[in-house]
Amino acid sequence: MKLTELVETLGLEVRSCSDNLFKKEVTGGYASDLLSDVIGNSRSGDLWITLQAHVNIVAVASMKELSGIILTGGREPDEDTIQKAESEKIVIMVSKLPAFELIGRLYDLGVRGVSNKTS
């Protein structure tokens, strides 16, 4: 699934690197606010759901080759986070929904948090 589909369906607002929306393929989801956890356990292609807005999230997403970051609960990325995201080609989106609901709706659209063993 392409990021752009999710942006349209869920009414996400894009805060950085919007030209990558059509390129990035979402293959799964990962939700965590603990950077060490994301570094340790997320999979490449995961869409990352978090409330952390500081600049370190960009480095983590870039290193783990995540498909994008959605900040929940109306949280906005810091200015330096946006700048860093532009240079690292990381798409940051924001949603007003709390994490639980946003994840629930992504799940309804077919985004899964565990590997699909049959494929």
Partner: peptide, 19 residues
């Protein structure tokens, strides 16, 4: 089950979110 999958499954089974 990881966080993303846990929230997704509960939501799918009808649990509402706080908003």
């Amino acid at each position: 089950v990881p966080m993303f999958e846990s929230c997704g499954r509960l939501y799918y089974h009808g649990l509402k979110g706080c908003s």
